[in-house]
Structure formats: structure tokens, C-alpha cells
Design a protein around this nucleic acid. Structure first.
Lengths: 110, 110
DNA sequence: TTGACATGTAAGCTATACCTTACGTATTGT
DNA sequence: ACAATACGTAAGGTATAGCTTACATGTCAA
């Protein structure tokens, strides 16, 4: 019986919400203040603040205090979790394709 | 004001749940029946069935009826959504690293 | 110092994700 | 025909995600 648990700091959960992905996209353009990040969206500023918290907990984003502002920047290291999962998946899939190809090759020329 | 909406068939949401990722991992090993997919987990069979539905809606998995069984297989095409998002992200980040590198190069040798 | 600003946090509401048990529906074997 | 099998779906409960408004905190500027 596999038991599966979920962590608040889960990267997959963090990138599941479209608004959070938009925030990451903005941050890919460089450091931004909380206000700059909140401005483009229809939701309230506290909502964005809470989304930023999720990204922080997931380790995707770092915070730097600068006077009365807080500047956020991307920390893309933890995205490797996603890339690795994706890569292992594609590797497995490729193996299966090869197996299928070999099988078909065997059928073609008996 | 950017408005952001969420779709049930969202791939990112589908892969957010660890159990669903486990299911995809199993399916990467080839076609499985619903029962085979449910067996390894601590949750009930209907729960797994509902997770499979989410994966179906996201287009990550296909269903084939075979007698009284249903066989599921991976359809990895839609994973490109994730890979593309990741790739564009890494591209942007690489640009930023280059920009930073150029800046530092400029500083080193004034 | 005092007021305006930038921001996070608290409290509370609503929608929904996720689980369970109970049931319905084909399909297979006897 | 009948019982067993392999499933999906319905109904309902509970936790929590995600939003809002109201408030607290720290900083700048006059």
C-alpha cells in the first residue's frame, strides 16, 4: 500500500495555480516589488501576497526587504523537481516507444 | 487587469496531486486496468477512479474498454504544455543570467 | 512627529478538492 | 438464468484553497 502525502511546499502545487505561474513569468523578467506584482491582476493585493507566500514556501521565489518595499526574485533551482520528473517520464516513454519499435521491426521482417 | 481562469482539464492541476503523478508513473510502464492501478494505493478504488477521470479530462491518459475491464494508457502529448512552460522559463532565466554575466564582465574590466 | 505609503497578517466566507460508502451497469463464467 | 467480477457514478462529509475586508507593522517624507 503506497501512502502518498502532500506538502505545502510542494512545487507542483505551487505551479498549479495560473496566477502563480503568471507571477513566475513576471519574475522571470527580473526583480519586482510586491506592488508591481499585484498591479496587473484583478484580485486584491493581499491575495497576491498570499500567492507569493506559497511560492516562497515552495522555494521558487526569494524575498529581499528594501526599505518599505519587498523585492521578489525568481529562484529557479527548485524547478528542477519538475524538469526531472518530466525527464524521467520522457525517458520511460522513450523506452516504451523503442520496445514497440523493436516489436514492430520484428513483425515486419519475420 | 489580467483575469486568470482555471480549467478542470488543466494539465498543471492534473499533475499537482502526488497520487495522480504516481498513476502516471505506473502508466509509463504500459497499459493497465483500473484495478491494477488502484491496487497499490491506500485509498479506495473509487478514489482512484476519480483521479483517473481528472487525468482523462486533462488529456494525459486514454481509456480503452475491453470486456468488463477498462485499460488505461498514457498519452504524453499534453505533457508538452508543461515542458514548453518550463523551457520558456529556462530560456528567460538564461537570458537574465547572460545579462548579469555581461554586466559583471563590464565591471571586471572597466 | 505625523501622516502617507508599502506591505504582510488575521479573520471569516465560499467554493471545491478529495475522500468515503452505497449503488448502478455491463460483462463473464457456471 | 444467476452469481460473481470489474468497473463508474452518486451522494455526502470534511478539509482546505483562495478570495475578501479589516488591521498591524515598519518606513519614508514634510
Amino acid at each position: 500500500m503506497k501512502t502518498v502525502q502532500r506538502a505545502t511546499e510542494d512545487v507542483f502545487t505551487a505551479i498549479a495555480h495560473p496566477l502563480r505561474r503568471e507571477l513566475l513569468n513576471l519574475l522571470a523578467g527580473g526583480e519586482h516589488t510586491a506592488g508591481q506584482l499585484a498591479a496587473p491582476f484583478a484580485v486584491t493585493r493581499p491575495a497576491v501576497s498570499q500567492h507569493l507566500r506559497v511560492l516562497l514556501d515552495a522555494g521558487l521565489v526569494r524575498e529581499r526587504r528594501d526599505g518599505r518595499e519587498r523585492r521578489y526574485r525568481l529562484d529557479p533551482d527548485r524547478l528542477t523537481v519538475v524538469r526531472d520528473w518530466l525527464a524521467s517520464h520522457e525517458r520511460l516513454w522513450r523506452l516504451r516507444l523503442h520496445a514497440l519499435g523493436d516489436y514492430l521491426d520484428g513483425q515486419e521482417q519475420p
